[in-house]
């Protein structure tokens, strides 16, 4: 395609010497930003670890009440979206506008599917009074696993299950917020891509949005086992 080789001088900001320098700066900036994100989520992971070890039974009970099928489905959706994002980045590098737009759109759709399913899960939690706060109720001992050898272990303290749900909503909520931002960024990329703003020489925005998107996926890869899976066999 001819446009591949068109120089894009307007894409070079005045304070950089070359597009290469500009792209590397953008990429490094995104990596540094992702490190801050790791530290940001890190505080929540620490909280999770602390209270998981303090209230293991309540956390297991809370996990059991989550819908593992929806969680697994969403995990698959996100991994798929990582693949389509990687392809989008690839096609931006080779300068194929049509495939770039296709894969960006697919990525965004998968992201929206994820958010939709999350919405279903959240609604269900509201209906079952599992959303923490004044309305929270935990009175279904059938859901609590039978635990032996530990006096009184069969009983689960509802207040601590509520803490599990606080952590669940904080972590998945923060993650969902990142997904929404990611989907918004991709929407902007799609518009720009359709207008032909990206070429084989200039595609830095696609690349760094890709980094961000993969990061958000990886966070979920940790959240899924921590919140849905661990202790499920008990």
């Amino acid at each position: 395609m001819a446009e591949n080789h068109a120089m894009t001088p307007h894409a070079l900001a005045h304070h950089f010497d070359s597009l290469d320098q500009q792209r590397e700066a953008g990429t490094l900036g995104m990596w540094v930003f992702l490190i801050t994100e790791i530290m940001f989520f890190g505080g929540l992971f620490l909280t999770y670890i602390l209270y998981r070890s303090k209230f293991p039974h309540e956390f297991v009970a809370g996990s059991h009440a989550l819908d593992i099928r929806l969680g697994a489905f969403n995990t698959a959706v996100l991994i798929g979206s990582s693949l389509t994002m990687a392809l989008a980045v690839y096609y931006s590098q080779v300068g194929s506008r049509r495939l770039l737009v296709t894969y960006l759109t697919l990525t965004m759709l998968l992201g929206l599917v994820f958010l939709g399913v999350k919405g279903i899960e959240y609604t269900e939690k509201f209906e079952h009074h599992h959303f923490p706060g004044a309305d929270f109720q935990w009175e279904d001992p059938a859901q609590a696993p039978a635990l032996d050898g530990n006096p009184g272990a069969g009983k689960v303290d509802g207040r601590h299950v509520e803490m599990f749900y606080w952590i669940y909503f904080a972590m998945t909520g923060l993650h969902a917020l990142h997904m929404i931002i990611g989907a918004g960024l991709i929407a902007v990329l799609i518009v720009l891509a359709v207008r032909g703003r990206f070429t084989a020489e200039y595609h830095m925005p696609v690349e760094i949005t890709g980094l961000y998107w993969h990061f958000v996926d990886i966070v979920w890869i940790f959240l899924f086992p921590l919140l849905y899976l661990i202790g499920r066999h008990e």
Partner: peptide, 29 residues
């Protein structure tokens, strides 16, 4: 590396204050 940690900490503090998560309150575990 450090500032995001104070950010999440202050956020938790705010939630705790508004909706009583119980993360920092011994009365709630």
């Amino acid at each position: 590396l450090g500032t995001p940690v104070i950010a999440i900490t202050v956020l938790l503090l705010a939630f705790e204050r508004v909706v009583r998560i119980g993360i920092f309150d011994p009365a709630l575990g």
